[in-house]
Lab assay of single mutants.
Amino acid sequence: LTVHVGNVTYHFDNPEQAEEWAKRMAKKYQGQIHVKDGQFRIE
């Protein structure tokens, strides 16, 4: 699973971990989480 934050990409084996990280990053950067094809993108 991949989480994109700006132009930085993080890889996770565990979906719960990826989702948790995406939520934390979205809160930190006050962005929206977009989920597409098993990838999380924070914008």
Rank of each mutant, 00 (worst) to 15 (best):
V8T: 09
W21L: 03
I33T: 02
K36F: 13
D13N: 12
G38Q: 03
H4T: 14
K27H: 09
T9W: 06
K23D: 06
N7M: 10
V5E: 00
G38M: 02
N14S: 12
Y10Q: 02
D13R: 04
Q39T: 04
Q30G: 15
Q32G: 04
Q39P: 02
A26V: 05
F12Y: 01
K23Q: 11
G6N: 09
K27R: 11
V5W: 12
A22Q: 02
H4V: 14
A26M: 05
E20T: 04
E20H: 06
V3H: 01
R41I: 15
H34W: 05
L1D: 03
Y10T: 02
E43G: 07
H4A: 08
M25P: 00
K28G: 02
Q30M: 10
A22Y: 04
Y10V: 05
I42F: 04
Y29W: 09
D37L: 03
Q30A: 10
N7S: 11
E20L: 07
A18L: 09
I42T: 06
K23M: 07
A18E: 01
N14Y: 09
G6A: 05
H4R: 14
Y10E: 01
D13F: 06
V35G: 03
F12H: 00
R24E: 14
I33S: 03
G31C: 15
Q17W: 10
H34M: 13
Q39K: 06
D37A: 00
H11R: 08
Q32K: 11
P15T: 09
P15A: 13
V8P: 02
F40H: 07
I42M: 02
G31L: 14
F40G: 07
E19H: 10
Q30I: 06
V8D: 06
V3F: 03
D37C: 14
I33Y: 04
H4M: 13
F40R: 08
R41K: 08
R41F: 15
I42Y: 05
E43Q: 05
V35D: 03
H11D: 03
Y29H: 09
H34A: 10
T2K: 07
P15D: 05
R41V: 15
E20Q: 09
Y29D: 03
M25S: 01
E43A: 09
E43D: 09
A18V: 04
Y10H: 07
I33M: 05
E43T: 11
E20K: 12
R24A: 14
V3L: 04
Q30T: 05
Q39S: 12
A22D: 00
A22C: 07
Q39N: 13
G31F: 12
H34V: 15
N14W: 06
G6D: 09
I33A: 03
P15L: 14
H11N: 05
A22V: 08
V3P: 00
H4E: 04
K27D: 12
G38R: 02
Q30P: 07
I42D: 08
A18G: 05
K23F: 06
G31P: 02
V35C: 15
L1P: 12
E16W: 10
R41N: 14
D13T: 11
H34I: 15
I42R: 03
E20Y: 07
G31E: 05
E16S: 11
G6E: 03
V5R: 01
K23A: 06
V8I: 12
R24P: 00
Y29L: 13
Y29F: 10
E19G: 04
Q17K: 11
G31A: 13
H4D: 02
Q32M: 08
I42L: 02
A22T: 02
E43R: 05
V3N: 00
Q30W: 05
E43I: 14
A22E: 02
E16Q: 12
F12P: 00
A26F: 05
D13H: 04
V35E: 04
T2N: 05
Q17S: 12
M25D: 00
G38P: 08
E20A: 12
D37G: 03
N14T: 12
I33H: 03
K36Y: 10
K36W: 12
H34S: 13
R24W: 09
A26E: 03
K27T: 10
K23C: 15
K28D: 04
K28S: 03
V3W: 01
H11T: 11
A18F: 11
R24D: 08
D13C: 15
K28H: 13
A26T: 02
E16C: 15
E43V: 14
M25Q: 03
K28I: 12
K36L: 12
T9S: 09
G6V: 03
Y10A: 02
V8M: 12
T9Q: 09
T2E: 11
Y29T: 06
V3T: 00
Q32I: 14
V8S: 07
E43K: 05
H34G: 04
K36C: 15
A18Y: 06
Y29V: 08
K28C: 15
A26S: 05
G38L: 05
G6F: 11
D13A: 06
V8G: 02
T9E: 08
G31K: 05
N7L: 08
E16G: 07
R41G: 10
V35M: 11
F40D: 07
V35T: 05
E16D: 10
H4Y: 08
Q30K: 13
L1E: 04
E43N: 06
Q30E: 11
G31I: 13
G38S: 02
M25F: 06
T2W: 07
E19Q: 09
V5C: 15
F12A: 00
K23E: 09
I42N: 06
K23G: 04
Y10L: 07
A22W: 06
N7V: 05
A18C: 08
T9M: 10
I42W: 10
W21P: 00
H34K: 10
D37M: 00
G38C: 15
D37S: 00
T9I: 14
T9K: 08
Y29A: 03
T2Y: 10
H34N: 10
E43L: 13
T9L: 11
A26G: 03
I42K: 05
G6S: 04
K23Y: 07
W21N: 01
E20W: 11
M25H: 03
H11Q: 09
V35P: 02
Y10I: 07
E16Y: 11
Q17M: 10
R24Y: 13
K36T: 13
H34C: 15
G6Q: 03
P15S: 11
R24I: 14
K23R: 11
Y10M: 04
Q30R: 11
Q39Y: 07
M25W: 05
E16I: 11
V3E: 00
F40W: 13
H34P: 03
Q17P: 01
Q30V: 05
Q39R: 04
D13E: 11
I33G: 02
V5Y: 09
V3K: 01
F40I: 15
E20R: 10
P15W: 13
T9Y: 11
M25I: 10
V35N: 04
F40T: 11
D13Q: 08
Q32H: 14
A26D: 03
H34R: 10
N7P: 05
I33P: 02
A18S: 01
N14R: 05
N14L: 12
H11M: 06
I42V: 11
V8C: 15
I42Q: 04
E20I: 06
V8R: 13
P15N: 07
N7F: 08
N14V: 07
H4Q: 13
H11W: 12
G38V: 02
D37Q: 00
M25G: 00
M25E: 02
A26K: 02
K36H: 14
F12V: 00
D37T: 01
G6K: 04
K28Y: 12
H11S: 06
H4K: 12
Q32C: 12
F12Q: 00
V3C: 03
W21K: 00
D37R: 00
Y10G: 01
P15I: 12
F40S: 08
I33R: 01
V35K: 05
G6H: 13
H4P: 00
K27V: 09
G31Q: 05
T2L: 11
E19V: 08
D37I: 01
N14M: 06
G31M: 14
T2I: 12
N7D: 09
E19D: 04
T9F: 08
Y29E: 02
N14D: 14
V5I: 13
F12I: 00
M25K: 01
N7R: 10
A18H: 02
Y29P: 01
N14A: 07
N7W: 10
D37F: 01
Q39M: 06
F12C: 08
A26R: 04
F12G: 00
Q39D: 14
G38F: 04
A18I: 04
V8W: 12
K23I: 12
E19I: 13
G38H: 03
K36G: 07
H4I: 14
G6Y: 04
Q17T: 10
H34E: 10
V5M: 09
Y10K: 04
T9H: 13
D37H: 01
G31Y: 06
A22M: 07
V5N: 01
F40N: 09
Y29N: 03
K36P: 03
I33E: 03
V3D: 00
D13V: 05
T2Q: 10
I33D: 03
A26P: 01
R41A: 10
Q39E: 14
E16F: 11
V8F: 13
E20C: 15
L1F: 15
V35I: 13
F40E: 07
R41H: 15
L1A: 14
